[in-house]
Design a protein around this nucleic acid. Structure first.
Length: 290
DNA sequence: ACCCAGGCGGGCG
DNA sequence: CGCCCGCATGGG
């Protein structure tokens, strides 16, 4: 078990706030830890006060594990600077007070894109169920021995595994009308579409490229850029964010999606993604506009 | 029963 | 362009 001191970090808020880890990781019962598959390794992270402990089952060197955990949970983000930039008003101030330590996680782009393609016109509980059934059905299995007992886990399914499944087969896991998008996304990602090149583009170009994919629109592209590529200026605008922004900043007046993008970009700039996650989680838990 | 969910593509004006 | 509609499925 390695340990690391952390400031301005809450693993609970981070893993509960409907990020990719919510969809494929398993939270500890007390909410202060999570286990997730990272390639062929299983990683466990838990938090006690201002330090985290973490370990990997499977072949992962200590230095690589440390880098993975640091990157995955956004522990390199300068939270005092970010808070200073997004604490623009009373609502944001309260959101930061209530959810301090919530970080933007950085996940595998393929995993992120798939999770958010599944998220469309769906709810968090069902998204998680569908993702976990896909992992159980199509993820490569690994057995690890820990203290005399054996543990089996499955890694996230590779695009190659999903690409060869029929739409009907994928629908058996409750994916509904998204099954055709899942299949096409998988085929593209193990075919001509280069997910690696997206990260090297600037935000606007990367978004245009992602939106070429069938089933990836404005919102899924922004989620993929934020949680998969760490592009913190992305401001995913779903029904919750739209309603919250209209309620908090426009006195309830309806705004278009592009109005909201423009507003967020002007107000929070390169940290709009962080503002979005605090708005989303605080507003959703307060049922703003509901 | 009815409504909605971290939207998207297609068709229309 | 902007607007409107249908869409699989299951929980509240």
């Amino acid at each position: 078990m390695q340990r690391m001191r952390v400031a301005d970090f809450s693993i609970r808020h981070t893993i509960e706030s409907a990020q990719p880890l919510t969809f494929f990781g398993d939270a500890k019962s007390d909410g202060n830890g999570v286990a997730y598959a990272c390639g062929s390794s299983m990683i466990e992270v838990e938090q006690k006060g201002d330090s985290i402990g973490f370990r990997a089952y499977g072949s992962m060197r200590a230095a690589r594990l440390r880098d993975e955990v640091r990157a995955r949970f956004g522990l390199g983000d300068d939270m005092p600077v970010i808070y200073n930039n997004i604490e623009t008003d009373a609502f944001m101030k309260k959101a930061i007070r209530n959810y301090r330590g919530l970080r933007i996680t950085r996940n595998d782009p393929w995993e992120t894109a798939l999770c958010f393609v599944i998220s469309q016109f769906n709810n968090v509980k069902r998204i998680r169920g569908i993702v976990k059934r896909l992992v159980a059905a199509y993820g490569d299995a690994h057995t690890i021995s820990a203290g005399g007992t054996q543990l089996v886990f499955r890694e996230f399914p590779k695009p190659e595994a999903l690409a060869e499944m029929s739409v009907e087969e994928l629908m058996r896991h409750g994916a509904g009308f998204r099954a055709k998008y899942i299949r096409k996304l998988a085929q593209e990602c193990c075919g001509s579409f280069d997910l690696g090149s997206i990260g090297r583009k600037r935000y606007a170009d990367a978004k245009d490229a992602l939106m070429q994919l069938d089933g990836v629109g404005d919102k899924v592209a922004d989620c993929t850029l934020l949680f998969g590529y760490g592009k913190l200026e992305a401001f995913p605008t779903d029904t919750w964010i739209k309603r919250i922004v209209e309620h908090v900043y426009f006195d309830g007046r309806k705004q278009s999606i592009s109005d909201i993008h423009e507003f967020a970009s002007e107000r929070w700039g390169k940290y709009a993604g962080y503002a979005q996650q605090y708005l989303f989680w605080a507003g959703r838990n307060m049922k703003v506009g509901r």
